[in-house]
Design a protein around this nucleic acid. Structure first.
Length: 326
DNA sequence: TCCCAGGGAGGAT
DNA sequence: ATCCTCCATGGG
C-alpha cells in the first residue's frame, strides 16, 4: 500500500564537501566487515537506514573520477513534510559511513616515502575509504561471521539472518525490508536453529551466546568506546568467537578506532615479507607493529595493504592467478 | 577428493 | 608462548 505522503528526494554532494579523493565503488566493494555489503545496481549503490525513526532507502552514484566528482543521492522516504531534515540526516549518515571527513591526502602524504611499502598502493587505490557500521551489534556479528569464511559467504549468512529474524520495516513504495535483527530476537534461538537457517556453520554458537550477553545486559557495546584501545580489545577477546582479529575488526569498522589493524593471513604475510624481511613473527606482533608504525592510520594502512594484495593476487600461497578478484 | 575462505578454542608441548 | 587439530559450509 503506497503511502499518499511518500516522496522521492534527490540531492548532490559535491567533491569539495569531501575531505580529499573518493572512489565509491572501490570503497563499497572492498569487503569491509562493518556491515553487509550494499546492494549494487550498475554504478549506484543502495542501502537502508533508520532515520527519524523510520526506514529510509537511499542510493548513491558517483560521477567523475576520484578527484573531480559529484555524488548523486536519491532518497525514498514516507514523510514529505520533513524531507529537508531527512536529506540532512542522509548526508550526515553517508559522511560517517563512508568516512568522507578522513583526510586522505594527509594520509598519502605522510606515508609516500619511497621506502615505505604502503606507498605503492596509493596510486591504484586512490580514494578508497574506510567504512564504518552504524549498528554496533550488527558490526560485531558480521565480524564474527567473517572468521575463517569468505566475504561472499558471510554476507549471505548475514542476509539470511536479516531475512529470517530481522525487524521488518515498511517502505513508502509498499514493499517491506528486513533490517538487522535485535540481540533479543537472536538470543531466543538455539544455535542449531540459527545454524540451519543461515548456514553460518559453527559460528552460530558464538552468535547466539554474544546475543544473549547483550540481551541480558551483561555486555554493553557502546561502553567500549569509552575504554582505551587495549582495554576494549581485552574485553572483546573474552567473548565467544572473538579473537584478536575479530576484536580488531569490530574496533575498527564498528567503533571507528582507526588505530586498530585487523591481522588476517593476507596482512600477516605482507607484514612479515615487507616489513620483517620474512622473519617469523606472530600475528599479535604484526598487529602491534602496524599500530605503532601507522598510529591513527593503522586501520587505513591495513585496508590498503589488504585490498592491494587481493587486487594483485599477492596473497597467501603466493599464487598469482587463482585468487585474483576483479 | 582436496583445499581454502579477512580465525578461534582447546589442548599438548 | 608457540604449535596442533577441529570446527560447518560452500566454492574452486
Amino acid at each position: 500500500m503506497k503511502s499518499p505522503d511518500s516522496t522521492r528526494i534527490e540531492f548532490s554532494i559535491s567533491g569539495n564537501e569531501v575531505n580529499g579523493p573518493l572512489e565509491l565503488a572501490e570503497t563499497v566493494l572492498s569487503a569491509q566487515t562493518s556491515e553487509p555489503e550494499w546492494c549494487r545496481d550498475g554504478d549506484s549503490f543502495m542501502d537502508i537506514e533508520i532515520l527519524e525513526g523510520m526506514p529510509v532507502k537511499y542510493s548513491v552514484t558517483q560521477s567523475g573520477g576520484p578527484d573531480q566528482f559529484v555524488l548523486k543521492v536519491r532518497v525514498l522516504c514516507s514523510r514529505s513534510e520533513i524531507q529537508d531534515r531527512i536529506c540532512s540526516d542522509v548526508k550526515k549518515h553517508l559522511s560517517r559511513v563512508l568516512g568522507l571527513t578522513d583526510d586522505l591526502l594527509s594520509f598519502y602524504k605522510q606515508f609516500s616515502d619511497k621506502v615505505e611499502p604502503l606507498s605503492e598502493t596509493f596510486s591504484k587505490l586512490r580514494g578508497l575509504r574506510l567504512m564504518r557500521g552504524t549498528n554496533l551489534y550488527e558490526s560485531l556479528i558480521c565480524s564474527i561471521l567473517s572468521q575463517n569464511n569468505s566475504a561472499r559467504l558471510w554476507n549471505r549468512s548475514a542476509q539470511l539472518l536479516m531475512k529470517h529474524y530481522g525487524t521488518k520495516g515498511d517502505l513508502p513504495d509498499g514493499s517491506t525490508c528486513a533490517l538487522f535483527p535485535r540481540p533479543g530476537t537472536v538470543a531466543k534461538l538455539t544455535a542449531r536453529q540459527l545454524q540451519r537457517s543461515t548456514s553460518m556453520g559453527y559460528r552460530a554458537k558464538s552468535v547466539v551466546e554474544v546475543s544473549r550477553l547483550i540481551a541480558a545486559g551483561d555486555l554493553c557495546l557502546p561502553d567500549l568506546s569509552e575504554c582505551s584501545y587495549e582495554r576494549a580489545a581485552e574485553r572483546l577477546i573474552e567473548l565467544p568467537g572473538v579473537g584478536p582479529k575479530v576484536a580488531d575488526c569490530f574496533l575498527l569498522y564498528g567503533l571507528g578506532r582507526l588505530e586498530a589493524a585487523p591481522v588476517d593471513v593476507w596482512i600477516h604475510r605482507i607484514v612479515t615479507e615487507r616489513y620483517f624481511r620474512g622473519r617469523k613473527v606472530s600475528r599479535l606482533q604484526s598487529a602491534r607493529f602496524l599500530r605503532e608504525r601507522f598510529r591513527g592510520w593503522a586501520g587505513y594502512a591495513q585496508l590498503y595493504l589488504f585490498d592491494y594484495a587481493r587486487r594483485t593476487g599477492a596473497g597467501p600461497g603466493g599464487n598469482q592467478s587463482k585468487r585474483r578478484i576483479d
